[in-house]
Simulated assay, not measured.
Amino acid sequence: MTVRLDNGIARMRLTRPCAGNAIDRDMVEALHEAVGGLEAAVEARDARVVLLTGEGPAFCVGGDLTYLGERVDELPAELEHMIGRFHRSVLPRLAALPVPVVVAAQGGVGGGGLGLLWLADIVLAADDLKLATGFVKLGMTGDGGSSWYLPRLVGLRKALELSLRSTPVTACEACELGLVTRVVPVADLAKAADEQAAEFAAGPTWAYGGIKRLYAQTWSRSYPEQLVAEYDAMVAGASRGDVREGILAFAQRRAPEFDGR
């Protein structure tokens, strides 16, 4: 796992290519530590977007079955620690970051690794992408938030098919279903990801965070309540420098120069 800051872009990379970036206890701990660093960088306004990638031919194949197989007699305790950490300290904190989270994924993605796709705001998929939940193949129910995200993304019937049958999904099918944002040739994935991250790094960071909060909370609100939330956010942002810059730039027919404040 590596994390580095580059012109407002926090680049987080999974670095277990020989294992398909499979998740073991060490990776969970590395993700936990990385999220803490991201939160600090966002708070300091050093990071205005997060770009998550995976080294090698696969983005993340899910749990490391070799690792778990070697500990099958201690599986309850091992899963309690790994999934507990992943669910409490990694996924919800990444999803709650008040900046755009972009994932660029290639090759195989499955199991708990899908959770890193689901929480992203933008998912760029290489054309060789193949998704599968995979849990029923192991006699397991699943983690990573699939039971929350999938019904919301594709509807209950399709979500059940993807989970109960572990139906594989190609990149183009994933895009049609709304599981990814867009598909690009695998050779162009890195370039497309850099361009998307740079766009967000130069954008109105506070507005991005506000939009994320509004969409995250819409599931638990009525329509009138959501209108109030939109009103509150618009009024709260009215005095911000980016709003002033955006309006003046539009009136002056020039491109805005946002500083994220």
Rank of each mutant, 00 (worst) to 15 (best):
G139P: 08
G115L: 04
M82Q: 06
V123S: 02
G155Q: 10
L119P: 01
L5K: 09
G69T: 09
D26T: 14
D194I: 01
P204M: 11
A216L: 07
H81Y: 14
G111M: 02
M12G: 05
G241Y: 05
G145Q: 04
F59Q: 08
L227I: 09
D143P: 00
A236R: 12
M140P: 01
T170G: 07
Y149C: 07
T66Q: 12
V136Y: 04
I247L: 15
E78L: 15
D127N: 12
A159W: 01
A233D: 13
L150F: 00
D128E: 10
D6S: 11
D259K: 12
E161Q: 15
V180W: 00
L248T: 11
L189A: 13
V35F: 10
Y215N: 08
D6F: 01
S146W: 01
Y208L: 09
L248R: 15
R253D: 14
L160M: 13
G144F: 04
F135R: 02
T2A: 14
A236Y: 03
K191A: 14
Y67R: 04
E70K: 12
L14F: 15
A201V: 06
A132C: 09
P185F: 11
L79G: 02
G36N: 11
R93Y: 04
L51I: 06
R244A: 14
E257Q: 12
G112Q: 05
T167S: 09
A249W: 01
V136A: 08
M1L: 15
A30S: 14
M12D: 05
G178Y: 00
V183R: 05
R16E: 10
S239A: 14
A255L: 13
V72E: 11
D194F: 02
D121E: 07
D188N: 11
R221M: 12
L94E: 03
G155T: 07
E78A: 15
S89I: 00
P98M: 09
R48Q: 07
L65W: 02
L162M: 14
L124Q: 01
G84Y: 03
V136S: 10
S166R: 07
A193L: 13
M27A: 12
E176N: 10
G178A: 06
D143A: 13
A190T: 08
L79N: 06
V35D: 02
A40T: 12
C60W: 01
L179Q: 01
R165E: 14
G145L: 04
V42P: 00
R48P: 01
E195D: 08
V90N: 01
V49W: 03
G246I: 05
I122W: 11
D64L: 06
G69C: 07
A190S: 13
R71A: 10
C18D: 09
P256E: 05
G178F: 00
V3F: 15
G69P: 03
R254L: 04
D242R: 03
E70A: 15
F200Y: 15
D143K: 00
T133D: 04
T66A: 14
A207C: 06
P204D: 02
T170F: 00
E74F: 05
R85V: 10
R152L: 12
V169P: 00
L114I: 05
T218G: 08
T181Q: 06
E70Y: 08
A105E: 07
A77N: 09
E80S: 14
R88Q: 11
A207W: 00
A159L: 01
L129N: 08
T167P: 00
Q217N: 13
R93F: 03
M82C: 13
G246C: 02
A229V: 06
R240Q: 12
D127C: 03
V35E: 06
E74N: 10
